[in-house]
């Protein structure tokens, strides 16, 4: 049963966050809107005798406090209302207002998991409450809810995606936080984040290091603290360092090849490419020309390649 009441604001316990779904703080926009139009959608409170708990409307209550209201209108439900009903009210009120971020979705799943241990039943209950959910997402969202807070916040803020968060969930919490901090600092994109996680995890696994310790190593600190480099250069530096640490021989071979190419001075019309990861059967040479004279000039370059002792040595290695 819900009744509309005028509730003394000091009796509302905002510290009790059982049903909190929103990750958004109270904003000036919301405060301004309430000042101008009043509370259009009333918060839903649970009567607890001497105090009230919030089921939905955490930001609205906070805005009203900031404005200085002593009493606010609210929908009040009985203290006897069962928990599943309260969860449905919280979910529906949030889900129908705005798109929810993954962390908010995770909170919904965590709430429903208190009454529906089975993932399929949970997904169905959430869908009925206005937040459509596929059963396959349930486990991921539960995992997200168990991640360290800085990682959760990064997901809520949108600079870490759910797939990246799932990669981080496989790591020790300190490592996950250290990587999240790095991603925030360098503003790495999705694929760069995943690549960095992979390389850092595998270097740490191979060398019996923790990821947090790996990321604190002086060589990386030096790259990150280089005042001459911008964010893009630092990002490149960190990823190059990790790649070289993970694939020392492959990177060494790539560097040796680049050195050969540089020495050969092929020009803009001759392209010499190595097989991918030096695994395939053949190198390829492309010559661009538009006249026989130009082709003849390329021949000189080809001869230079053929007679270069360093390139010969490189191929024989």
């Amino acid at each position: 049963m819900r009744t509309e009441s005028d509730v003394p604001i000091e009796k509302i316990d905002s510290g009790e966050e059982t049903f909190r779904i929103t990750t958004c703080p109270c904003t000036d926009d919301l405060t301004a809107s309430i000042r101008s139009c009043g509370l259009i959608n009333l918060p839903i409170l649970r009567d607890r005798g001497s105090t009230f708990g919030i089921i939905s409307g955490f930001r609205r209550v906070e805005a009203c406090r900031q404005i200085g209201f002593s009493r606010i209108p609210a929908r009040v439900v009985s203290r006897d209302l069962d928990e599943s009903h309260c969860i449905r009210l919280a979910v529906t009120d949030n889900a129908l207002q705005r798109p929810l971020n993954p962390l908010e979705a995770s909170r919904i799943v965590t709430l429903f998991s208190r009454i529906h241990p089975d993932h399929a039943a949970l997904a169905e209950a959430s869908t009925l409450a206005g937040f459509p959910l596929h059963p396959a997402m349930v486990e991921k969202l539960i995992t997200l809810g168990r991640l360290p807070h800085p990682v959760q916040e990064a997901v809520a803020e949108g600079f870490i995606t759910l797939p990246v968060a799932m990669d981080l969930a496989d790591l020790d919490p300190k490592g996950a936080v250290a990587l999240t901090t790095l991603f925030d600092r360098l503003k790495l994109g999705f694929s760069q984040q995943r690549e960095t996680i992979l390389w850092a995890t595998e270097v740490a696994g191979r060398e019996d290091l923790s990821i947090a310790d790996l990321l604190k190593e002086p060589a990386l600190e030096e790259i990150l603290n280089d005042s001459q480099s911008d964010r893009v250069q630092k990002s490149l530096g960190v990823r190059s360092y990790l790649k070289k640490r993970r694939f020392p021989y492959l990177v060494g071979r790539e560097e040796a090849f680049k050195k050969c190419i540089k020495k050969l001075k092929l020009g803009a019309d001759v392209f010499l490419l190595h097989p991918r990861d030096f695994e395939g059967p053949a190198y390829s040479l492309t010559l661009q020309f538009n006249t026989l004279e130009a082709l003849s000039a390329r021949k000189t370059t080809v001869d230079r390649i053929l007679n270069d002792p360093d390139f010969k040595k490189f191929l024989e290695q």
């Binding site: 595998e202 270097v203 696994g205 021989y249 492959l250 071979r253 990861d277 695994e279």
Partner: peptide
């Protein structure tokens, strides 16, 4: 799995050829 693997021509992961 921490060896220096690259993707081979058949899609399998293989140690760096050298």
């Amino acid at each position: 799995i921490y060896g220096e693997f690259i993707r081979g021509m058949d899609g399998k992961m293989r140690y760096f050829k050298p």
